[in-house]
Design a protein around this nucleic acid. Structure first.
Length: 207
DNA sequence: ATAATGATTCGCT
DNA sequence: GCGAATCATTATG
């Protein structure tokens, strides 16, 4: 009998190429973000996401078709990771979406540990298991062992980072849409309800 | 070459 | 609630 920690089917990279960031952000809630770092498998249920839709979206790094060394990964075809450093301290993990040339991305903002919680606590230097372990875009990367090495990497078991589960399994009434966090400079784009999280979940970064 | 800044977190008040 | 930490990226000279 499969229990709650058994593995599920990986989501193929094609899924992310065939859907835009808004669809992916909404539909991957409830699936699992998994890593294998130094042979250690850790995974968590995705509970909170944000969509970034360049070129129109001023909050995106690729706003106005801005192409730089940092943003070039977002223009590649979907189904790969975009990892960047924020505030010089944190590594934020995004999923590249859409076909090549479209710079859409989904920021993963929070997960609920489902596998390897002990290892995550070790990485986070925590003694007790609380949402502080992985409810936040910077700290979830820390918990899963995600660093800049994963930037640009295609999602697959072989590459040590992948998603598994079945998209679009969460009922619409269990999903909350809200304003995105930390993008006040983006004017009207800051008003878009492009953040999605699981209703009533304690494993979210901010309500 | 230099300077400003951020898709954040933590600790203290 | 507020401010510091801390550095890659970016724009500008």
């Amino acid at each position: 009998m499969p229990d709650s920690s058994s593995k599920q089917a990986p989501i193929p990279p094609e899924y992310f190429r065939q859907n835009n960031a808004l669809v992916v952000a909404r539909n991957i809630l409830g699936t699992r973000l998994c890593t294998r770092v130094n042979g250690v498998y850790t995974a968590g249920i995705i509970t909170e996401t944000e969509a970034y839709c360049a070129p129109e979206d001023k909050a995106s790094h690729a706003w106005n078709d801005r192409k730089t060394k940092r943003t070039e990964v977002m223009y590649r075809n979907g189904g790969r990771a975009y990892v960047y450093m924020c505030y010089g301290i944190h590594k934020l993990f995004n999923l590249v979406c859409g076909p090549e040339g479209v710079a859409h991305a989904v920021l993963i903002r929070a997960i609920q540990p489902i596998e390897g919680a002990e290892e995550m606590m070790k990485r986070r230097k925590l003694k007790v298991l609380t949402p502080r372990i992985s409810a936040g875009p910077g700290i979830l990367s820390q918990a899963l062992g995600i660093d800049m090495q994963f930037n640009g990497v295609e999602l697959s078991l072989n590459n040590g980072v992948w998603l598994e589960g079945i998209p679009d399994k969460i009922k619409p009434e269990d999903v909350v849409s809200a304003r995105r966090i930390g993008i006040e400079y983006a004017g009207e784009w800051a008003e878009k309800l492009w953040r999605f999280y699981l209703k009533d979940s304690p494993w979210v970064s901010k309500i």
